[in-house]
Design a binder for these strands. Structure first.
Lengths: 246, 246
DNA sequence: GGAGCCTGTGTCAAATTCGCGACGCTTTTC
DNA sequence: GAAAAGCGTCGCGAATTTGACACAGGCTCC
């Protein structure tokens, strides 16, 4: 077993990485191998910019390891808005492939990140020839639209404490493998590893760094959350959910 | 000529209505007729709710006449957030068809509106069998995501005057048949018919009705816009674009 | 191994922005 | 002709941003 290294084994690793991605999860073996042949690996250092908003783009990136944040850079100086972060099994950069327009946002590696790159010609061919991939793509795009709609909703209706609480609940739900839409139906104690700085969190909920600091302190004071090392503990998710009421 | 009424003529009208929609624009005649057979007409009175957020949904609506607003209802009382409005040639309600989840927003007819309804089974079949429709669908979804991303960006970075100015510019760009992304590169005088109330405008940019009123007055005072009957005149779009700077 | 130096955090007071409630007035709708 | 919908306007007060500064920990470069 330990001897099974080299091209055959790494081909297996690639297949495994693809299976972890919704786009390829339901695809049959033969097609999967075809896809694998169309992909090229690409690694990024921590903090490296993968592409920048406004650039032309003709490639989609499938994350097999690490994490990427999708941000909207502010014109200068101030903190960028963080639209979402993408981990293993996720992909990004599909928009420019679909409509040929420039990148709508900036992608930056949060950690050392391994990706596989799919270029437009191969992508177009796969979308046409692989119904399973096509369906997965459509479902993912629909999910993207729902996520953004929810974000707009939050920014419209919720004040800062509400947005913070809802963000925590959604992150929780995702970590639990549940639908983020059900975030405020969670109950009981949850734990959440905490890789973000307060400034980044501010960028996610549309607030200043200082406000986030104060709000977190408030939550701790009310006993709604608690820090345990580098984990965030939510003793009772349903109580936190009450804080999101308009 | 006047005698050419009845099923043949209305079939022609249906075809014409479909051609106006991106989904069917590039489709060949035979396929178009197949689609036409799968559609059922449905009309809505002004102010009628077409579907409500949270409802299950398995139909897509193609607008052939009138206008529909897609909104996120506030829990109660206050003004809903208006995500977008859709006119002839547009369609809505596709999300629930793609992922089977409940309606993410509410659709309300702004005017007396004529639509054609496409149910899931027919939709699925068309997506699989009609590459032209499929491509148009993907492009439209990508555009939707770009629009929402831009909306999140505005809510993050811009204050109220900025959001109002940008909204006007985008509406202008769309009326001109240009890409809304280029909104702040417009120059010269533009006119914009004005079917919205101040409360609705407030719902679009995330503001209170009173603020919108004051901001509009400010813009008029600065000479950036002017009212001419029920039209809004922007003497110099580039000057208005300056007001969107962060 | 210490002197910087950068990043991330905690905290304040001042200034601002914006929502909210409250009117009164005009225009449309029934 | 009444009722409802939309508009113009104020002032207060709450929510947030801004800018500033102090402090801790970790990193690099002598």
């Amino acid at each position: 077993m330990a001897g099974m290294v080299g091209s055959a084994a790494s081909g297996g690793a690639l297949r495994e990485a693809l299976r972890a991605c919704r786009l390829f999860a339901d695809m049959d073996e033969a097609s999967l191998d075809m896809c694998a042949a169309a992909l090229r690996p690409r690694r990024f250092r921590k903090g490296e910019t993968i592409f920048h908003a406004g650039d032309p783009g003709d490639a989609l990136f499938i994350v097999s390891d690490g994490a990427v944040k999708i941000t909207i850079p502010s014109d200068e100086g101030s903190e960028p808005a963080i639209l979402t972060t993408i981990g293993p099994g996720g992909f990004f950069g599909e928009l420019s492939l679909l409509d040929g327009a420039p990148r709508s946002a900036t992608a930056v590696a949060l950690d050392p990140t391994a990706t596989h790159v799919l270029r437009r010609d191969a992508f177009d061919a796969l979308v046409d020839s692989e119904p399973a991939l096509r369906r997965a793509l459509l479902v993912t795009l629909a999910g993207e639209i729902r996520r953004l709609t929810a974000q707009v909703e939050d920014l419209h209706f919720l004040d800062l404490p509400g947005r913070l609480a809802r963000h925590l609940l959604r992150t929780l739900a995702i970590g639990d493998g549940r639908d983020p839409a059900e975030a405020d139906t969670l109950v009981g104690e949850h734990r959440l590893s905490w890789p973000y700085t307060q400034a980044e969190l501010a960028g996610m909920i549309g607030a200043s760094r200082q406000s986030v600091n104060r709000l977190l302190a408030d939550l701790v004071a009310e006993g709604l959350v608690r820090f345990d090392g580098d984990e965030l503990v939510i003793p009772d998710a349903s109580r936190l959910a009450l804080a999101t009421r308009r």
